[in-house]
Write a protein that binds this DNA or RNA. Sequence first.
DNA 1: ATGGCATAGATGCAAAATACACCTAGTGAT
DNA 2: ATCACTAGGTGTATTTTGCATCTATGCCAT
Lengths: 139, 139
Amino acid sequence: MPARICPRHGDRYPCTCAMGNLYRFVEPVVLLLLRKSGSCTGYDLSRELQRHALTDAAIEKGAIYRVLRQLEANGNVSSEWKTGGAGPARRVYRLTRAGEQHLGEWATVLGHLSKSMSRFAREAQAPPDRGRSSRIRSS
Amino acid sequence: MPARICPRHGDRYPCTCAMGNLYRFVEPVVLLLLRKSGSCTGYDLSRELQRHALTDAAIEKGAIYRVLRQLEANGNVSSEWKTGGAGPARRVYRLTRAGEQHLGEWATVLGHLSKSMSRFAREAQAPPDRGRSSRIRSS
DNA sequence: ATGGCATAGATGCAAAATACACCTAGTGAT
DNA sequence: ATCACTAGGTGTATTTTGCATCTATGCCAT
């Protein structure tokens, strides 16, 4: 649907690259990574996220920070500044209790969605089955 | 992520209602319905789509027509006007060969995505496993 | 005949989301 | 002092979305 063509798979291919960051389900993956790591910074996430992402589409750095601030605004993560180490200050994020529940909700939603998609894929991949000899007759 | 609250599930719940129509994967479902039915109108689709949708989020009528025109612009469906029946003219859509292939590509993509999501859901639903007694100790 | 209703296919537009480039600031190496 | 690297962002033009609205045809009861 997006007018922009995907640089990786060319145009007209429905790769998940052709979806926005929301489509790429950045939020749930951030929540899961935070739970797994205990705590980490946006910069850490930006490097880990691609590996754990639900799609192979590139995940934008800007999107991660925006998702983190959104999550914090909703009370799903908390953050504190860590100064004194090498380089600039880091903001360390941590999952709140609400965030853990939010992650559980995402798991439910994505579990359902996974089943729907798997059903869809099975059905769509099955042969059309309308006129067995269509390939022969279409000269 | 969307600021708007979901009228069905309330706010802060990550239901698929909180996703846009692109997120709801309207395009692949339209392609599949067209293949199953042979041909049908946008209006037909608007009534069938909800039943076959990948998510339980409401699918907008306007979005369907937009998706259909996009698909036609890309050569994935063709249409012709059917006048003379009862009521206003109907535009009858049909899958092209390119459209069938496009559907197959969607099936691949959603098949992969389904697996990622299922893996995610399993991992996210598993207990956090950091400090067995956290529930007891948190007074 | 005519007003209301169902069908059918859209379009208009404000608001939200997105992509991509750009900005600030600290540290250490050259 | 200049550069590169880390870290955390912001600005903004463009797209996409949600919701309301519009046009038009035919049917039916009044």
